[in-house]
């Protein structure tokens, strides 16, 4: 969201800068007695708005689109940002250690795929939960779920997180 905000900010700021400067130039152009427009076809826009009522389809549709864009923008900005780091235990008050949440799912998947009997794995990190889905090529997967669960729990415990996510492991048998 921060990156999206940044891209939007640069685009909108550039647009506003051009629009603001153009407005000043157009007014100055008219003020010195020049006829017609300099760059922006504002006379064409004004003519359109002089011939269309507030209830005409294009005007209502345009207003609805503007309102919807505003609503989406507002809701996105008001949405609480998910913290990017999971805190790691530290005894030092001047020290903050965090693990990137997004990379944790990659790390979990890689670690799960390394467990004996597992050929591939994926992981999803939620707010307080981590879900690992592991695929095994073994014909008999009896007890494998418990084994993977224990291995992954030990792996998560080794991260030393302040609030480790609650782990759920699902083992699926690869279709032969």
């Amino acid at each position: 969201m921060r990156v999206l905000d940044r891209v939007l900010a640069v685009l909108l700021a550039a647009l506003l800068l051009v629009a603001g400067a153009l407005t000043v130039l157009e007014v100055a152009w008219a003020a010195i007695g020049k006829r017609g427009q300099l760059l922006a076809p504002y006379e064409t826009w004004a003519d359109y708005l002089r011939t269309h009522t507030w209830s005409s389809g294009p005007v209502v549709a345009g207003c609805v689109v503007v309102a919807l864009v505003g609503l989406v923008l507002l809701l996105e900005e008001l949405k609480p940002r998910r913290p990017g780091l999971l805190a790691v235990h530290s005894d030092d008050e001047t020290l903050t250690v965090g693990l990137a949440r997004r990379s944790l799912s990659r790390g979990l998947a890689t670690a799960a795929a390394d467990v004996d009997g597992i050929s591939e794995a994926s992981a999803i990190i939620g707010k307080r939960r981590a879900a690992v889905t592991a695929v095994s090529a073994l014909r008999d997967v009896t007890g494998l779920q418990q084994h993977v669960q224990a291995q992954m729990q030990a792996w998560i415990d080794g991260l030393n997180l302040v609030s480790p996510p609650r782990l759920t492991v699902t083992v699926k048998q690869k279709e032969h």
Binding site: D5, R6, L8, A9, L12, T53, W54, S55, S56, V59, V60, G62, C63, V64, V65, V66, A67, L68, V69, G70, L71, V72, L73, L74, L75, E76, E77, L78
Partner: peptide
């Protein structure tokens, strides 16, 4: 960015909403 985009969102919502309400 956050407060400017929020403000812009409010302005667009108010202007667009008022225009649509007027038209309807």
């Amino acid at each position: 960015n956050r407060w400017t985009l929020s403000l812009l969102g409010i302005l667009l919502l108010a202007a667009g909403g008022a225009g649509a309400a007027l038209g309807l």
